[in-house]
Design a protein around this nucleic acid. Sequence first.
RNA 1: GCGCGCUUAGCUCAGUGGUAGAGCAUUGCCUUCACACGGCAAGGGUCGCAGGUUCGAACCCUGCAGCGCGCACCA
Length: 1014
Amino acid sequence: MRLGVCKAAAFPHLARPFMPELEKTYTPADVEARWYQRWLDDKCFEADPARVSEKRPAYSIVIPPPNVTGILTLGHVLNNTIQDILARRARMLGKEVLWLPGTDHAGIATQNVVEKTLKKQGVIKHRDDLGREGLVAKIWEWKEKHGGIIIEQLKKLGASCDWSRERFTFDDDYNACVMRVFVDLYKKGLIYRGKRMVNWCPSSLTALSDEEVVMKAQNAIMYHFKVEVVESDGTPVLKQDGKPWELVIATTRPEVIPGDTAIAVNPQDERYTDLIGKHVRRPLPIEKQELLPIIADDHVDFSFGTGVLKVTPAHDKADYEIYLRHEAKYSSWEDEQLKVTKGFTKTADSTNLSNYVPMMEPIDVMHPNGVLNELAGKDLAGMERFAARKRAAELLAEIGSLVKEEPYQNNLGYSERADVPIESRLSEQWFLKYPSVKESQAVVANGEMKFHPDRWAKVYDHWMTGLQDWCISRQVWWGHRVPVWSRWVGTNTKLPSVLAAALEAKAAGGKRQERFECSLSGLPGHTTILSEEGAPDGESWIISLATASDQEKAIIESPEYQEFEQDPDVLDTWFSSWLWPFATMGWPEKTSTLKAFYPTTDLVTGPDIIFFWVARMIMAGFEWMGELPFKNVYFTGIIRDKQGRKMSKSLGNSPDPLELIASYSADALRFGIMRSAPLGQDICFDEKNVELGRNFCTKLWNAARFRQMQGGATETEISAALLSSDDKWILLRLNTAIAEVSTALEEYRFSDATATLYRFFWSEYCDWYVEASKAVLQGADEKRKANTLAVIDFVLGQTLRLFHPFLPFITEELWHGMGFNADMPENQGGKSIMFAPWPKPLDADELAHFGILPEDEKVVNAQIELVTNTRSQLSTMNIPRSKQPELYFEPNPSNSEIVWTQVDFDKIQVMLNAKSFEIYPSNFTPISSTTAVLSSAGTLYIPLEGLIDVEAERARIGKELAKAQSELEKVTAKLADEKFTSKVPQKVLDEHQQRKTDWREKLAKLKEMMAALG
RNA sequence: GCGCGCUUAGCUCAGUGGUAGAGCAUUGCCUUCACACGGCAAGGGUCGCAGGUUCGAACCCUGCAGCGCGCACCA
């Protein structure tokens, strides 16, 4: 049987044309550039939905779109190498592969970058210099010029993306998807506009979602200041001892004291129950020291500080909630019972509604940019918030209010992007109630969609359980514009006729504050969602028009509708990226691409965007495709430096991947980073690993060269009769490697896969098999030599394929350079190794054909032990390599599995650089100048006249003897223990028995050796 | 505060009940006709600590400590 024939698709042909010798050194830069271009030219990465069939299943993966302004980081290298490995292996498994690439417009980040650049270049001083359209035009210009950098960098890495399908989250088609989705959610009532407390970035001047805020530990100062308790008319409230009652309040933000509207205590706090309903005099601003009511709220923790909380509803989320609670309770109480008397009546029952007093409206004392405004008072107005803080403390000190200040550690929310503390700020924004939450939560919980490692499923579930509405509007210019136009109208406002008619038609049966669909253009399929929102006074209200249709939009922007203004906000970047898996495939059309490749197979991303992106994509998938967007999510680790710190620009600890590629090659970088990326762990990056990858490639190259030096073509099939023990051994080891690598990849254990490849190729193939084969290759038996070369060719061919997903470039170069492609079908490796079938282990029939038994491995394993032990001993004894000893071998009679052949003897002789190798004569008695090496294969006697230090040898053997003695005693004692033998499984018992036998034999041998020394 | 992860050789990490492993680093020898980006060998660990279960624990259980991360947060 001939390997190439028995499974044509699965095995390379063994005969190949003579190839010129490979270059002595491998030059990756040329090779990588050349092959990547060739792959592009040959359209190797392009996916064709038409090719998908039952026999050729689809495999798809969408790239996590990097920021269009981005440059390649090690994080990208990790992430995209993994995707490339998955994609390339899928191709080799005969799948139709789509790896869909693209970039993200990255709203705030991109606008920041471009604005900064323009300011640096002196083009503008402020964005208003250009205005909205001007700036957006500049950003587009900039994007066209610099936007593709990261894409080119990904190509350098070898990424096999289908570049013909590259997408951008802000291109026209994509924008249409976003609009459509917005209007759809708006129509469903899931998107609403409202005045809420939001996270405000005073640097970027925009609202942020909760996910864009990171908590940071902060060294702050806690200021304690005192206030006087007074009645509502200002008269002091006295304590029992007759002294004025004062409260001490702690705060880290004295600059917002002018925004305080109440003082809160816990209703259960007995210290203060008598004070509820009284007032305090607010110390700041000095010129306007208003009286603030003391109110009760359960939120106050009376074990914290003095148990007295100042309430600043315009600048603190929790305080704003207190305000809302009290407003709600007070107004209901007011309405129902005591509308007349707005005054406060204290009762003993603290839960009685009459314990609530009205609060002032929130006082916003800050401009959006973090500078204090006039409401903060003349002393603070115009000051930047941190300077104002210091000043406020000084003011408190000046008026004798400040009691103490002490260092205090607290957590503060920072804007993730601008890296400045955020402000909680009351503002009008767009919010989204998440859609398809139930299905999305269930699909992960029930295992239909798998997270790897699965502990992230818990994190996901937790987040999905406590979903807060998503603030989707941003006050920047670069992004998808909110497709809503609105205007205030009154009862007498004259509206465009179509609109008026639509409203009237609806008004007949409907009521206010409703959303309904109509068509302004009258064109079928083009609609606008109309909504009315009442104003507080009922005299005027807002009409809003939302549409995703260009035709409708044109009408709204026509002169007739001129008083309708488009909402100035743009949408959160993630509001576009959550559509990525289907918006990139032609949605909302039912394209052949969607049909073939959606849902995608795998998603590879970092756990840091599990909420930002992964969770939201799942919800979007269900909402608009009615199906999950991907079946598996692989979460990579975070790359850290040797000290365990995150890679960051500010620390300067992030190596440039392109420099690494330049000095070590892309293959080396890929291999290095995969080797150090265990599943579920953060990655400690060390350039050493890349160096190791480079060394590995060199080794691969030289192993290939070695093969070529043995002669070009082999016309021989592998002959079962001529297989040596080493041939069988390496074929078995290859089987194991194929199985291990395949399993590891199926389980996303990339570092395990690389470890196996490394071990197999370096330790097993190069260090043992090639060395062991040299005896044959340098010998005179041409038939045997040819057979060995045939085995080598088979192993190398399989190895290159196993390596291809990890090392795409060098494997392709060698695949062609050695002629493996020569007579493979075009689509199975003839054109590129990337389409060569993924190796399969030899099956039972094939093993039987070659007469290979699983036990055959043990033969060589024993020989390895013998050779290693001998080398070790010669080395320990300082025997020079030039010595070339004569070897006398006594096979271990109890190891009958080993059938020794002359090939084995020749091999061992070569490997030990010996003069001769003979079977030890049974009647031979060891002499004192002979050392002996023990192994399970047998005993090797080495006469070393004059080279043996008898004393040292005696000491050495003595040590080993002691060790053998103690091991034997241990195992004997164990086996004599009734408790052990009666409870242990047979297998373990056998192992111990075997161990006992082995140690006993070894002990006997050692004693013999000791005796021989005299 | 709640949750998750980690702790094994100098470093980075494998090892889910049966004789403690790999790579790197270190040391020694070898410029042997694929490779010094190489070969051969050596040294190096009471598996974070304390209990428990078991004939037997790096591994299972409990507690503790340290490090990291996520969520929630008190002014």
